[in-house]
């Protein structure tokens, strides 16, 4: 029985990978990541002298005399910030197309007729999608981290942790895509809602300021509820940055509260999927 669960999960994950790579966008991701890695391997030249960078040259422009540790961390932070914003955007965009295809009539019936529980099908697809994105993020982050490490001997682990945060935030956003895909079967709506959550997050993160500006108790409560209920993408971004730069992390609340949001949304989609007729 257990081995059967494994076989089925593995088949669902592998199928998600196959479908992802049948779409050019995922090849595009890997292509860009590889280009960035090659860029750092061949273009960036760093000479380290006794713990300080003697010269860094990019395209022949040379700068001198930096604190090597600080410089590497800044570079890490830059890449992480890019992945966290543009990368996340693209990942959600690509996944919103990948999830609802499974529920297409003519395809879902066959999956449902197999001796597999409905929740297993949905979780397998979800896991596959998270792993597709995780593979890409880890490939890029690990690649860049190793290149910087080899060239500068700085091996601060913060950058690696930030990639975990990135995948975590993506997996939370994907639960939203999943729920909407199950209930409305629409890639466009799924994408719009996920993006709305992303865009609202920096605004809601200013809730203490907003609360001072808003006059009615009712609107203050609304902001507060929205802030605590929705995933705290902006706060998690700041947390990731702190991890990269080696600053102390004061508050882990954004992590567990966002995880809670993800769990609730995921349970909602499992429930809805279990009850639907196809």
């Amino acid at each position: 029985m257990n081995s059967k669960t494994g076989i089925v999960t593995w088949a669902l994950v592998r199928d998600t990978f196959r479908e992802a790579f049948a779409r050019k966008i995922f090849w595009g991701f890997f292509g860009c990541s590889t280009a960035l890695i090659l860029f750092f391997i061949f273009i960036m030249k760093i000479d380290v002298v006794e713990g300080a960078v003697a010269t860094v040259s990019l395209f022949g422009n040379t700068t001198r005399g930096h604190d090597v540790q600080r410089l590497v961390r800044q570079a890490h932070a830059g890449i992480a910030a890019f992945l966290y914003t543009a990368g996340m955007f693209l990942a959600v965009f690509a996944s919103a197309g990948l999830i609802p295809t499974v529920f297409e009539p003519g395809r879902i019936e066959l999956l449902l007729s197999k001796p597999v529980e409905r929740y297993h099908i949905l979780l397998g697809r979800y896991l596959g999608n998270v792993l597709v994105i995780a593979a890409n993020v880890f490939y890029l982050v690990l690649g860049v981290w190793i290149i910087f490490g080899v060239k500068t001997a700085v091996w601060t682990p913060g950058f690696l942790w930030s990639s975990v945060i990135i995948v975590f935030v993506f997996s939370v956003l994907l639960t939203v895509v999943l729920l909407i895909a199950v209930v409305w079967e629409s890639a466009v709506v799924a994408m719009m809602v996920a993006f709305a959550i992303m865009f609202m997050s920096p605004i809601l993160a200013q809730q203490s300021l907003l609360e001072r500006l808003l006059t009615s108790e009712w609107s203050r409560n609304t902001i507060r509820v929205l802030y605590y209920a929705l995933p705290k993408i902006f706060d998690l971004g700041r947390l990731a940055r702190a991890l990269v730069l080696g600053d102390p992390v004061i508050d882990w609340m954004p992590v567990w509260s966002s995880a809670l949001f993800g769990l609730v949304t995921l349970s909602g989609s499992l429930y809805a999927f279990g009850r639907r007729d196809y």
Binding site: D15, E19, T101, E104, P105, G106, R107, E109, L110, S113, K114, P115
Partner: peptide
């Protein structure tokens, strides 16, 4: 219960 069953749906759209 569905393990012994094989099914070919109408209007299937295989990936």
């Amino acid at each position: 219960a569905r393990r012994p069953a094989g099914y070919l749906p109408e209007n299937h759209r295989f990936p």
